[in-house]
């Protein structure tokens, strides 16, 4: 019962964070939302009893991809369509 509640909570969080990535105009906030999406996917892998995949998803998806996006934002502009 409690597993089912956590499971549906994680999946609802996945959908909400994916929509947040789509709606944010501030690209740094959108990147952080994508990192949170990856973190929730890693929690989902852990619930499905795949801890190896959960560790690699948390490190690569939530850590390194976010770092690469932040470096890209640093080299370009922070807001969509140029600086306001």
């Amino acid at each position: 019962m409690i597993e089912m509640a956590i499971h549906s909570l994680v999946i609802a969080g996945l959908i909400v964070s994916a929509l947040m990535v789509f709606y944010f105009r501030d690209l740094l906030a959108a990147t952080l939302a994508a990192g949170f999406f990856s973190f929730l996917i890693s929690v989902e892998f852990y619930i499905l009893q795949a801890p190896d995949v959960a560790i690699s998803q948390a490190a690569i998806g939530a850590g390194l991809t976010t770092a690469i996006f932040i470096i890209t934002i640093r080299a370009t502009s922070r807001y969509e369509g140029g600086n306001p």
């Binding site: 190896d52 490190a59 690569i60 770092a67």
Partner: peptide, 21 residues
């Protein structure tokens, strides 16, 4: 324990990337 070379190396590289960012 769960994990291994690739996972642990990715965790360490995340720490390095934190300092780099």
């Amino acid at each position: 324990t769960p994990g291994g070379g690739f996972q642990g190396g990715a965790v360490v590289a995340t720490g390095v990337a934190l300092v780099i960012v």
